[in-house]
Design a binder for these strands. Structure first.
Lengths: 192, 192
DNA sequence: TAGCTTGTCTAGCGGTGCTAGGATATTCGT
DNA sequence: ACGAATATCCTAGCACCGCTAGACAAGCTA
């Protein structure tokens, strides 16, 4: 059952269009505003077309989350390479992490709070997910000292995630952000 | 416009019934399963009755979240009072915190991830919220050393929240929980 | 060109939160 | 004790959601 290559190209182009459009709506108005009807209207196809590409809305969000992971991994590695001690490495990581969450909140949500269709923390995890954790690990791992680098990274990451999440849901006032990050980085820089 | 006291009593009793029933469904099947129709059926009234007590589903969840806060504040203070250093105080707090999230996941969600109708971190915050943060502060504040106790507590709390959240959404494998908590507590126990 | 596959759309299912308007029960003034 | 005013409740329905069956049109193959 060989496919016409042009049609296959068109198809994957349209699939990309779906994900891109979903991201656009989500960045503008949040994921709740991404309804299958609106999405279909914006790509100028009918609803069922979405389901010929994805199993449902969740799968579309998961696809967006994967794209987001790839971009996050790149962002997290920004400014790395300069000779730095573990403290400034953690600080830079924290800044990059918050920066990503600030600039692409919909993607952050898709990755970390919605879209539970993704498999995390497993060898079976999609490559972008593993790569994103790899970026975290490269920055935070060296600060682990005697501890297991992966566990140390997970813990630091979770702390960042907690700060981001609570701040974004207005459960923590944002003005003291820098001080909180500072405390966190200081705690985790001591290492062993 | 004076009300019949009996009727008023009945009303507030029914209001409590609504919240309690909502909590029951949520604990059994999650908040998505708490639909206004199901809730109305279970209390044996029609849907509009709910709206004569609350402005909507969000308000019902907020009410449940407030109840949850009161209970959480109590739970967080468990075992306190024994003479203890800051490290074991933080450890106990972390254990109590995870324990609450484990035992009452629906309440945890209502308080910390859903129900954004609540005002956090403000003098205008509802008393149960302020009390819950008070409980956190009593345990974590003494470990702050030279730092501002409130900010130090917020940061430690955010870290706990991150661990809980990522673990519960299967983004962190749960088996290493104790190790992660241990790292976190060790980082924050050093104080100044 | 005839027939078959593939792609797409219209229409609709069962569900959601929420509400308008009418029926019913309760209380009050006479 | 009875009619009017008031408070209470329910039926029915709105607009929306994610998702899908089945009709129809377009394209490819023989």
């Amino acid at each position: 059952m060989v496919m016409n290559p042009r049609r296959e190209r068109d198809r994957s182009q349209r699939e990309q269009l779906i994900v891109t459009t979903a991201r656009e709506i989500a960045e503008d108005e949040g994921w709740d505003a991404v309804t299958t009807r609106r999405l279909a209207a914006k790509i100028e196809y009918s609803q069922p077309v979405l389901y010929s590409h994805f199993s449902g809305k969740g799968a579309i969000m998961a696809a967006a989350a994967l794209e987001g992971c790839t971009e996050m991994a790149i962002d997290l590695r920004k400014g790395v390479g300069v000779a730095e001690d573990s403290r400034s490495a953690l600080w830079r990581l924290a800044e990059n992490y918050f920066d990503f969450a600030d600039r692409k909140p919909a993607l952050y949500d898709a990755i970390f709070t919605l879209a539970s269709e993704l498999t995390f923390a497993s060898p079976d995890s999609p490559a972008p997910l593993r790569d994103a954790f790899g970026a975290l690990l490269e920055c935070a791992g060296p600060a682990a000292g005697a501890h297991d680098p992966a566990l140390y990274t997970e813990t630091f990451w979770a702390a960042l995630h907690g700060l981001v999440t609570l701040e974004r849901s207005r459960r923590l006032p944002p003005q003291a952000r820098a001080e909180r990050i500072g405390m966190l980085v200081d705690r985790f820089a001591v290492g062993g």
